[in-house]
Simulated scan of single mutants.
Amino acid sequence: MSFLNMLKDYLLQDKGNSFINDIPVNVISEKSRSLPVSVTSKRVENGFNITDTTRKEQQIINITVVDNSSQYLINRENLEKLLEKGELVTFYFNHRDVYENMVIENIEEIESKDQKNGFTFYITLRQVLVVELSESDVKVDYKKTGSSGGAKTRNTAKIKSPTTAEVKKVNEVDSTILNRASDSIF
């Protein structure tokens, strides 16, 4: 763990702060995490269904945020901008969990007569897998396969490391969170 991450963790330790990028979502009444798996079933000769494959899907996080801060209108506007742009976000939950490569899939806003200066949001975050396509030449012994033709090209997808621009963006968010946390402590 880097020194910056340790310092950020220390400053946020007793605060119970949560953030979506640098937007504070401090009062979270609920958080649920779903780790779905797709399961395929096929019917066989005697009419029985068998399950032959499973595939891990992207995780989904649902949070309920009650924003009664003095900046609740600005926070709402910033969350809506992230939703419209479809930008990748990082969700920091109560100094405990960090979820990267997430996108805001849905924001449901609730207003009530009891909550005059603030909003309640139901926010759905979905994990995005970043892949990179690459091509490679495959050498095939055509006598063994019984086919003809030249070299075949196979496309494959690989999960890639973050680019320097992505790393820089995350570091900027980390430094913003660190600055906010240190300002509120001192």
Rank of each mutant, 00 (worst) to 15 (best):
V89H: 06
V98R: 00
T90Q: 04
K85E: 07
L73Y: 02
I60E: 05
N101P: 03
S38K: 15
I60G: 06
D114F: 07
D97A: 02
N46P: 01
T54C: 05
R96W: 02
N106T: 12
I110H: 07
E45Y: 05
D114P: 09
Y99K: 02
L82N: 15
F91N: 14
L88V: 05
K116G: 01
I104Y: 06
E84L: 05
Y72E: 01
Q115V: 07
N106G: 11
S41V: 03
G47E: 14
I110L: 07
L83E: 01
S38N: 15
S38C: 14
N106S: 14
E105M: 09
N75K: 04
K81D: 10
L82A: 10
T51S: 12
N94W: 00
V98I: 01
N62F: 03
L83I: 05
I63A: 08
S38T: 15
S112H: 11
N68A: 13
S69F: 05
Y72D: 05
V89M: 11
V39Y: 04
E57G: 08
I61A: 09
F93R: 03
Y92K: 00
R76D: 12
Y72N: 01
I50P: 09
K81G: 06
E57Q: 13
E108Y: 00
R96S: 01
E45P: 01
H95Q: 15
R55C: 06
N101R: 14
V44G: 01
Q115I: 09
V103L: 11
I60N: 14
T54K: 12
Q59H: 07
L88C: 09
N75Y: 01
D52A: 08
L83R: 07
T51Q: 10
E45K: 03
D52H: 00
S69W: 04
G118C: 10
E111H: 06
F48H: 14
V103S: 15
L79D: 08
T64I: 12
D114Y: 08
H95P: 03
E57T: 03
G118H: 09
V65Y: 15
Q115R: 15
E80G: 13
K116D: 06
V103D: 02
V39N: 09
L82V: 10
L73F: 02
Y99Q: 00
S41Q: 05
E87W: 02
K116F: 03
M102L: 13
